[in-house]
């Protein structure tokens, strides 16, 4: 039993506390103008998705064959009309819902699963490491787009299957980063010191390994969101994701591609939305990376 000496002095009540690591990260991030602009755009897009029924001027599914492919600025059609005469503005607003769900959801799921696998492989080492990492390597043999297409093709078209396919695509890279960081952290003296105190593996991982591994893996995962958005749109474009008449930016690109010569501006609108969202996630991720890249 660890015993306290009888000559224990009174515990000082006032202890000077340094701000924690994460509050420092958020302070630095909030000073990054570019990252804050990206965050503002993303907040607007998310609000747009949530408030779609209140923002959309028209029913996104209401087709009018007489008003097909109206140019931008047509009265009643602020951003023009699509190939079935549906209001583009309303469809873009509604499309943000499915696009965000499909593009964003796979990343946190892959982040959780990949981190668990990677930390396990990195901390356990040996045989378990070989099994997990060589399995991950199999997935690296395929380009991510091809893998996503092949997986969702095998699972069958549909929103959920496309999301599952994207999750599977993103687990191996997250696992690899988590394993690399864990292997590095595990050999540091403070983990050895924790072992000399007799702590079990679960406690060492929770207190000493995870807090030092999550940061870099988290930054990497945020950078995957932009890739995921594009892949999700790509799957819908290929008919492997959302099906018509649902509004989704990737699918809208597909259905409007025949109009690229008659109404190029209208046809490009969903692509512009994907581009803005994707680059905003990327910029925010970059800002987060530099905000976290300090000593300690």
């Amino acid at each position: 039993m660890v015993s306290l000496s009888p000559a224990l002095p009174a515990v000082p009540t006032v202890v000077a506390r340094s701000p924690g690591y994460w509050s420092g990260v958020f302070t630095r991030l909030s000073r990054d103008k570019l990252a804050m602009a990206a965050l503002a755009i993303l907040v607007l897009i998310v609000l747009m998705a949530i408030l779609a029924p209140y923002l959309a001027p028209a029913d996104p599914a209401k087709a009018t064959m007489l008003r097909r492919l109206k140019p931008i600025g047509t009265p009643g059609y602020p951003l023009g009309g699509d190939e079935l005469g549906r209001d583009m503005l309303s469809r873009l607003i509604y499309g943000s819902r499915l696009s965000l769900i499909m593009g964003v959801t796979p990343v946190p799921v892959a982040f959780v699963i990949g981190t668990i696998l990677g930390v396990t492989a990195g901390y356990a080492g040996g045989f378990l490491n070989t099994v997990i990492m060589r399995t991950a390597d199999v997935f690296f043999a395929f380009p991510s787009v091809l893998l996503a297409v092949a997986l969702s093709g095998a699972l069958g078209a549909g929103l959920l299957n496309a999301m599952v396919a994207l999750t599977i695509v993103f687990i191996p890279p997250v696992t690899r980063i988590a394993e690399a960081v864990t292997t590095q952290v595990r050999s540091l003296d403070y983990v050895e010191a924790a072992r000399t105190s007799g702590a079990g593996a679960a406690k060492i991982i929770r207190i000493h390994v995870l807090p030092n591994v999550l940061g870099p893996v988290f930054v990497y995962a945020t950078s995957l969101i932009s890739v995921s958005m594009i892949l999700a749109a790509g799957l819908s474009f290929l008919g492997l994701g959302v099906r018509p008449p649902e509004a989704e930016w990737g699918l809208m690109l597909n259905t409007l591609r025949t109009a690229i010569y008659t109404q190029p501006m209208v046809a490009a609108l969903p692509g512009i939305m994907i581009f803005i969202t994707s680059i905003s996630f990327n910029t925010l991720s970059d800002g987060l990376r530099s905000a976290m890249d300090v000593k300690a």
Partner: peptide, 14 residues
């Protein structure tokens, strides 16, 4: 045990 590298032997997040 006390290790040589005073920085590496303290968890930066604690």
């Amino acid at each position: 045990m006390v290790f040589q590298d005073s920085y590496a032997s303290l968890n930066p997040r604690l």
